[in-house]
């Protein structure tokens, strides 16, 4: 990767400094992450989703009621729904793909650059390095859905009228309330992606080929969604990390139904504990040769 100089520079120095502790390590890791051109390319691709949707609907005039993804037919009446539709479109594939890239790269990327050794010479400690890498991936999990809803709202505001929003229950709320709900949806999606990040981090400790870990993480997300659609595997559904991904619709009800938010958080925490522990064990016993 072209950004190698940027990549290993500040992180190694700060890690050697040691005194600043986990926070400064995290700071430099975030700086590295968001200085990379790849990260901006990923966020840019996500931002394109609402833009494409809004422009397409603007040009073609929108689908008849009940066709296309949910909420798409409401965009012409209210630009607010651009963000909601974009999140809905991005969840099955695009968001997991970007998370897969960031989480899968975490350890394997350093290993493939030959920088992992230097990171571990520093007194940072392996567990702390894992923690920092996970937290950086989590920050990306916040940034990715936020990009989609913010760009979606802006483009929706630019191209369509914006006004009071009709919720799924048929109740109508003001645009301020609706935007708060949109932020809650972004938070829901962030929580949804945390378990997957832990899986990506674990896969990343298994290999020195980052592309392998990235692809495996993204594929797992797709496989999990396919299994979630098979009625024969119904007993397994509540255990799949993708099971509640589309449950964010519950935030568009009146009164808001928080059950799926809570269930989702518990499920993702479970994945975080299991795969976090696996990653720690694997990383502590790993022979770091590069």
């Amino acid at each position: 990767m072209s950004s190698r100089e940027v990549h290993d520079g500040p992180l190694v120095l700060d890690a050697r400094g040691g005194g600043g502790g986990t926070l400064s390590l995290l700071g430099s890791e975030l700086l590295t992450l968001f200085r990379r051109r790849r990260t901006w390319a990923l966020l840019g691709a996500l931002a394109l989703i609402p833009i494409l949707i809004a422009v397409a609907v603007r040009l073609s005039g929108g689908p008849p009621t009940g066709r296309g993804p949910a909420f798409l037919d409401q965009i012409t009446n209210n630009g607010f729904f651009v963000g909601v539709t974009a999140i809905l479109v991005a969840i099955p594939l695009f968001l997991p793909l970007t998370i897969g890239v960031v989480a899968g790269d975490a350890i394997a990327g350093e290993a493939s650059h030959g920088t992992l050794r230097y990171l571990l010479i520093a007194p940072a400690g392996r567990i702390r390095l894992l923690l920092v890498k996970y937290l950086a991936a989590a920050v990306f999990c916040v940034a990715a859905p936020l990009t989609v809803v913010v760009v979606g709202t802006l483009i929706g505001w630019a191209l369509f009228p914006i006004g009071p929003v009709t919720l799924l229950s048929g109740a109508t709320v003001g645009i301020g309330d609706a935007l708060l709900r949109l932020l809650a949806i972004a938070a829901y999606v962030t929580v949804s992606l945390l378990g997957m990040s832990a899986i990506g981090l674990f896969l990343s400790t298994l290999t020195t080929v980052p592309v392998g870990a990235m692809a495996a993480t993204a594929i797992l997300a797709v496989v999990s969604q396919i299994m979630d659609a098979l009625p024969q595997l119904e007993w397994l559904h509540p255990w799949l990390f993708t099971h509640y991904w589309l449950g964010f619709g519950d935030l568009m009800r009146e009164p808001v139904v928080w059950d799926s938010f809570a269930d989702n958080a518990v499920l993702q925490a479970g994945y975080l504990v299991v795969f976090g522990a696996l990653a720690v064990s694997r990383f502590l016993t790993k022979d770091v040769l590069s």
Binding site: G270, V273, V274, A277, L278, V280, S281, T285
Partner: peptide, 16 residues
Amino acid sequence: RRLIRWIPAIAAPIAI
């Protein structure tokens, strides 16, 4: 020592 380090990975699913 290696074995001890795998304990969290085994313990977490069991606890859940």
